[in-house]
Write a protein that binds this DNA or RNA. Sequence first.
RNA 1: GCUCCAGUAGCUCAGGGGAUAGAGCAUUGGUUUCCUAAACCAAGUGUCGCAGGUUCGAAUCCUGCCUGGAGCGCCA
Length: 574
Amino acid sequence: MKQLNRELESAISAALLSAQMDGQLPAFVIPEIPVSPPKRADQGDLSYPAMGLARLARRSPLDLAGLIVERLNSLAFIDCVEIAPPGFINFTIADDYLKRQVDAIIAEGEDFFQLDIGAGKTAQVEFVSANPSGPITIGHTRGAVVGDAMARLLEAAGYQVQREYYYNNAGNQMMVLGKSLMLRYRQQIGDAVDYPRDYYQGEYLIEIAAQLADAHGDALRDKDWAWFKDAAEARMFEWINRSLTAIDIQHNEFFNETSLFEDGRIWRTLEAMRENGHIYESTHWEGADAAEIADVASKGYEPATWFRSSGFGDEKDRVMVKSDGAPTYTLPDIAYHSDKLERGFSIAVNVLGTDHFSQAQVVKYGLRALGMDPEPIHVIFVQMVRAVRWNEAIGAYEAVKQSKRAGDFDTLDDLVVMTSADAVRYHMLARSPNSQLDFDVDQVVKQSNENPVYYIQNAYVRCAGIFREADERGFSDDGADLSLLGADELRFVRKALELGNVIEQAVSNYEPHKIAFYAHELAAVFHPIYDRARVLHSEVPPDVAKARLRFYRAAAVVFHRVLRLMGMSAPERM
RNA sequence: GCUCCAGUAGCUCAGGGGAUAGAGCAUUGGUUUCCUAAACCAAGUGUCGCAGGUUCGAAUCCUGCCUGGAGCGCCA
């Protein structure tokens, strides 16, 4: 399927170039030509503002528009070209062309607007990457949904995509997890245990401990924390995967942080940075002022290993290896990302919470210190998400507390149970990643009947309903004459033809939420048509009915495609 | 204190140099002999946080300020 605005952009560029060749316009480098749908229907289907180029061309905007139109090669899909003050060129798409696209859409099916922007290129999306120390929370879910939608859109753009989970199973937190489970287990078998406040407080560890006690009695009393760490990790990992699978998210690569320790890659990374002159040993960072040095001295640290990240623009240097010999989280992270770059992806998208902002910066400085170009890596930062609920008493929204007893929740599992996988996916996606999200529990749960989720899916359901009825009546669209389609149906086809640009923009700007808004707009165009353009109705002549049935087959293809791009289901009934 | 993100309708949010700023929810009234109501039709609401600046043109770009959030660990 063609992206019509792209075709027009090339045509306008060509017109400008030919005018330059003939000396009609001065020489200048032709910039990007933005062609997009205008706001109002009487402004055509696609529009180009020539005002922006008027100064370069040394013409009045209207003159320039006129000149472009004169030199424009005729395009099969364009019916009418108009110039509107102060210098817009408005194009109308030919009805014949739109009618032909109905069959074209059906022929493309699941490949409708499968683009070739990324043909022959590889992309990786790293997302979720939650520590295996607890369940997937609402916060993780946002990253999960955004990342998976990004992956689907990249695939639609033609990239070969890998979905990766950086499995953060090394480090201090995992030790604490192991020790936590160990103590919970000992509590279960009746030992008097003092459970530290900075250990994991979640009830899920108590449940696992109870299961272990049921299965093994007190036979595990002599196992060390490492044994319990492995036990906890395995269960958490399984749990996380089950939760993600429930909203149709599957990674196809799991990268273990521990592997970076086992094969010594973190130390090789450190040495490579040292060889490039970016590592030093000290009790404090080189740029520290007197107050900082005094502060550090009071803590009595032995020298640590520092990365001179300030040389790359960082506000201060960072510790790579602590004075106790253990690496910080940053070192394996740099090693991991250097490995990622070495794998040669054209694009490596990383979906992170904004709390990782500084960390991501330091990793990029680290990659530069290794002599690598971090350019293929693009980070989508998703802002905080919190579940809120309207509190009538105070007349304001209130954050939902993390208390299962009170019927509140903060995990993906609970969210899915209370709403649905599709609702979770839509609501998490239908927001710009860099705006904070208040997930209104009541709106998603109680008002699910008037939810955009079902508004969109219902469009597909309605098509399916027509096909069922048509089958029962033995009515087919064989030999449909698409010239009988009306203005309503063509409006939908116009909207459907915008999908290519939506995919392209979502991919090139790393804005997967665009597809969610587009889906809603598409449904808003569809439903009124469904009301008016009936198929199996006594007053609709059979030849018109055939044409319409064909049209709805195309509409179903479009909705199916869009729903799948969002990772949502396309149900036949609701 | 420094960095990043946000502030647009009553609420939740799109739009991020282009024509008269949009959607959902909420509110009000109406619509179904035949695929359909999780739908359709109709109605109303804005100092686009504030103040300057750039531009033919600013909700959009620049500067300053106000408000909310995140980050600035020898945590991960």
